[in-house]
Amino acid sequence: MNTTPDTAESGTGGGGPGDRLRIAYSPCPNDTFVFHAWAHGLVPEAPPLDVTFADIDVTNGMAERGELDVLKVSYAVLPWVLDEYALLPCGGALGRGCGPLVLTREPGADLTGRTVAVPGERSTAYLLFRLWAAAEVPDGVGRIVVLPFHEIMPAVRDGRVDAGLVIHEARFTYQDYGLHKLADMGEHWESRTGLPIPLGAIIAKRSLGKERLHALAEAARASVRMAWDDPDASRGYVLAHAQEMDPAVADQHIGLYVNEFTADLGEQGYAAVRGLLTRAAAEGLVPPLAADALAF
């Protein structure tokens, strides 16, 4: 995984070297689709980007250390970083029918005392899993193992862990590994709240100032709309970073995770984010949010 700036793919317009923004997002199709236009200098007036590709667990850590100007992170990490970063109202991943899955080798497995692989202890997937497990596995799961998301299904298939919590395109490919869906964290969340599922957020340094933060949000929104207007323009960029993913799976991935909430969180989106973090705080899983913590 590339975790260094990929300046060859950075934009070329929008100002001098001092104006360049350091941004990190994943090589997953939804992120490369969303940021293609901006990263290639196609968004008018948007600052050029120095892009770092990294798994979500890595970008969460970057945010906690205050690294980079703009980051794609898990919503679950927000309570630890909102003093330094502001949540942008666009560019992220939030939707319906797109929740993380718990996979096992055998259908209907009991997770009590079992080893479960997760994509990060500060990931939204793990936070949703903990809320689910509190209700559905009352005696508790066993050991939690953190693995990069693309290593989780092979680990379950090969018996190195008893179950895996998967995200991204795994919902389309897990049957290829001979695995079974034990539970859908999104279904559990939606059935209890009626709200969409918050997954990944775009955050930016508050020190950039409110005027520039609003300009960044507009750049992200414009990049999303340009991707929708001409999906073929980003295809090479998406597939080049999609880790040998089948193009049809990449298209499914984009179709599921890039939606109206990517262009603007809106009232429902903000309600979902606050609802998740408020419920998690009530369970003692994250620090409580200040009343204005999500304000932009």
Rank of each mutant, 00 (worst) to 15 (best):
K210T: 10
V273P: 08
A272I: 14
P198F: 06
E244S: 11
Y237W: 12
A233D: 12
L195Y: 08
I197S: 00
A233P: 02
N259H: 02
L256G: 03
D232K: 14
R192F: 01
D246M: 08
P196I: 11
P196A: 06
M245C: 11
Y257F: 15
A219F: 06
A201K: 11
A219M: 10
E211P: 04
D230H: 07
K210I: 05
A240G: 04
D229K: 09
K210C: 01
R225D: 10
S223V: 10
R221E: 15
P198R: 06
A248S: 11
P231V: 09
N259R: 01
L195C: 03
A250T: 12
D230I: 02
A233K: 09
L265K: 07
D246V: 06
D232V: 13
L208D: 05
G269Q: 10
T262F: 01
D229P: 08
K210W: 03
Q252F: 03
M226V: 13
F261V: 06
L265T: 04
V249Y: 00
D232T: 11
R212M: 15
D232E: 14
L208K: 13
L208W: 08
M226P: 09
S223M: 05
R274Q: 07
G269V: 15
A242N: 08
L265G: 02
A227K: 05
V273S: 00
G269L: 08
K205D: 14
A222H: 04
D230E: 12
I197Y: 00
A219I: 06
E244C: 09
I202L: 10
R225K: 13
H253V: 06
V249I: 12
A220C: 07
A204L: 13
V258K: 01
A272H: 05
R235C: 02
P247I: 05
G236P: 04
I197W: 01
H214K: 11
L208F: 03
I203V: 15
S234R: 14
Y257H: 09
A217N: 10
V224M: 01
V224A: 01
E211M: 06
A222C: 08
D229S: 15
D232F: 00
S223F: 06
M245H: 09
Q243A: 12
E244P: 03
Q268G: 08
F261W: 06
A217R: 14
Q268E: 15
L213K: 07
S234L: 14
Y270H: 13
A215K: 10
E267V: 05
Y237K: 05
R225H: 12
A271F: 00
A204H: 07
G255P: 05
V273W: 02
A204Q: 11
A271R: 13
G236C: 04
A204E: 10
A271V: 02
T193F: 01
D232L: 14
S223E: 12
G266Q: 05
L199D: 13
R212S: 04
L195A: 04
